Amino acid sequence: TTEYTFTDDEEARRAIEELKKRGLTFRYEKHGTTWRVRVD
């Protein structure tokens, strides 16, 4: 499991789109302004 942290909404959304394109399994949660994206 790899975890990424983003504080920029645009950056987080781009990363999420990219992961979807690659067909990877991931989860994300947003805490205030911080996004945590975990890739299995």
Score class of each variant (00 low, 15 high):
residue 20 K to T: 10
residue 19 L to R: 00
residue 29 E to L: 06
residue 23 G to W: 02
residue 16 I to P: 00
residue 38 R to G: 04
residue 10 E to H: 09
residue 22 R to G: 05
residue 39 V to Y: 03
residue 20 K to F: 11
residue 12 A to Q: 01
residue 29 E to A: 06
residue 9 D to G: 07
residue 11 E to D: 09
residue 7 T to R: 06
residue 16 I to R: 00
residue 3 E to R: 04
residue 34 T to K: 07
residue 37 V to S: 00
residue 32 G to T: 02
residue 35 W to D: 02
residue 17 E to V: 08
residue 12 A to Y: 07
residue 29 E to K: 06
residue 12 A to K: 02
residue 34 T to R: 07
residue 9 D to F: 13
residue 14 R to Q: 11
residue 26 F to A: 04
residue 14 R to I: 09
residue 30 K to S: 03
residue 7 T to C: 14
residue 6 F to S: 01
residue 40 D to F: 15
residue 1 T to C: 15
residue 9 D to Q: 07
residue 35 W to H: 10
residue 18 E to H: 08
residue 8 D to I: 04
residue 13 R to S: 06
residue 31 H to F: 12
residue 24 L to E: 05
residue 8 D to Q: 04
residue 35 W to A: 03
residue 37 V to M: 02
residue 2 T to F: 13
residue 30 K to D: 01
residue 26 F to Q: 01
residue 35 W to S: 04
residue 31 H to K: 11
residue 10 E to D: 12
residue 6 F to M: 02
residue 27 R to H: 14
residue 10 E to A: 11
residue 37 V to T: 00
residue 10 E to K: 10
residue 40 D to W: 15
residue 3 E to S: 05
residue 32 G to A: 03
residue 8 D to F: 04
residue 9 D to E: 13
residue 12 A to C: 11
residue 38 R to K: 13
residue 2 T to P: 04
residue 21 K to C: 12
residue 39 V to M: 04
residue 18 E to V: 07
residue 40 D to Y: 15
residue 11 E to Y: 05
residue 24 L to T: 04
residue 35 W to R: 02
residue 10 E to G: 11
residue 4 Y to I: 06
residue 17 E to T: 08
residue 38 R to T: 15
residue 7 T to N: 09
residue 38 R to I: 15
residue 21 K to M: 08
residue 16 I to L: 06
residue 19 L to V: 03
residue 4 Y to K: 02
residue 18 E to D: 10
residue 15 A to M: 15
residue 6 F to T: 01
residue 34 T to Q: 10
residue 20 K to E: 09
residue 35 W to E: 02
residue 38 R to H: 13
residue 31 H to W: 08
residue 28 Y to T: 08
residue 18 E to P: 00
residue 39 V to I: 10
residue 9 D to R: 09
residue 9 D to T: 05
residue 31 H to P: 00
residue 32 G to F: 02
residue 9 D to S: 08
residue 17 E to Y: 08
residue 10 E to S: 09
residue 14 R to W: 07
residue 2 T to E: 08
residue 5 T to L: 12
residue 30 K to Y: 04
residue 23 G to F: 04
residue 4 Y to E: 02
residue 27 R to P: 01
residue 26 F to P: 07
residue 29 E to T: 11
residue 31 H to V: 14
residue 35 W to Y: 05
residue 21 K to D: 05
residue 40 D to N: 10
residue 35 W to K: 02
residue 13 R to H: 11
residue 7 T to L: 09
residue 13 R to E: 08
residue 11 E to W: 06
residue 26 F to S: 02
residue 16 I to K: 00
residue 32 G to R: 02
residue 30 K to I: 09
residue 2 T to V: 13
residue 19 L to W: 09
residue 25 T to G: 06
residue 26 F to T: 04
residue 19 L to K: 00
residue 7 T to E: 11
residue 1 T to S: 11
residue 33 T to W: 04
residue 35 W to M: 04
residue 26 F to K: 00
residue 25 T to M: 10
residue 15 A to D: 01
residue 23 G to V: 01
residue 40 D to L: 14
residue 23 G to D: 03
residue 3 E to C: 15
residue 22 R to V: 05
residue 36 R to Q: 06
residue 39 V to T: 03
residue 16 I to T: 02
residue 5 T to R: 06
residue 1 T to E: 09
residue 29 E to N: 05
residue 28 Y to W: 12
residue 3 E to M: 11
residue 4 Y to R: 03
residue 18 E to T: 07
